[in-house]
Amino acid sequence: MAETLTLETPRDGVTVIRLNRPDRLNAINEAMRDELRSACAAVGADASVRAVVLTGTGRGFCSGIDIRDFGPGMLEADDPAIDRLRFQEAMAALPLAIEAMPQPVIAAINGPCVGAGLALCLAADLRIACTAATFGNAAILLGLSGAEMGMSYHLPRIVGTTVAADWMLTGRTVDAEEADRRGLVSRTVAPADLFDTAVDTAATVAALAPLGVQMTKRALQTNVDAASLAAAMEVENRNQVLTHATDEAAGRRQKWKD
Rank of each mutant, 00 (worst) to 15 (best):
A97S: 10
A219I: 07
V185G: 02
L96Y: 05
T201C: 10
P191H: 11
P191V: 09
N223E: 11
T243F: 04
I158T: 14
E3Q: 15
G115Q: 07
D78H: 10
L120M: 12
G73L: 05
N223T: 13
V49F: 02
D258L: 09
T246Y: 01
P80E: 05
A232Q: 04
E76A: 13
M91F: 09
L19P: 00
I98C: 03
L229Q: 08
G251M: 09
A139V: 04
R218V: 12
L141Y: 00
E177R: 13
A192H: 09
P72I: 10
M151P: 03
Q88K: 11
A123N: 01
G56T: 08
I128N: 04
E236D: 13
N20R: 07
Q214S: 06
L19I: 01
T15V: 08
V16Y: 03
A124Q: 04
D180Y: 12
V52G: 01
V53P: 00
N137T: 11
N29G: 15
M149C: 14
D79T: 08
G251A: 09
Y153G: 12
V52N: 01
M151S: 12
T15C: 06
G117T: 08
G150W: 06
V53E: 01
S48E: 07
T201S: 11
G251S: 09
R182Q: 14
R84P: 06
N110V: 05
K217R: 04
L242R: 10
V114Y: 10
G73C: 07
R37I: 10
L141E: 06
A116L: 14
D175L: 04
V199C: 01
V14I: 01
A27S: 15
G183I: 10
L122D: 01
D175K: 02
A124L: 05
I67G: 10
E8A: 07
A81N: 02
V14D: 02
R218Q: 15
R253G: 13
T246R: 01
E178T: 15
T204L: 13
E177V: 15
Q214E: 11
L184H: 04
V14A: 01
L120F: 12
A77P: 09
M215E: 15
R86Q: 11
C121S: 15
T188D: 00
Q254I: 08
P72F: 10
A107G: 03
A123M: 05
A250Q: 07
A39G: 03
D166I: 12
R24Q: 10
S228G: 06
A164Q: 02
T197Y: 06
G44L: 00
R172W: 09
F61N: 00
E3G: 12
R218E: 15
W167I: 15
N137W: 10
D180R: 13
L5M: 02
D34L: 13
G183V: 11
V213Q: 00
R11P: 04
A124E: 02
F61V: 05
T161D: 15
E8Y: 04
G71R: 09
N137R: 09
M151R: 14
R86E: 14
V189P: 06
R21T: 08
T197V: 05
N20V: 07
L94F: 00
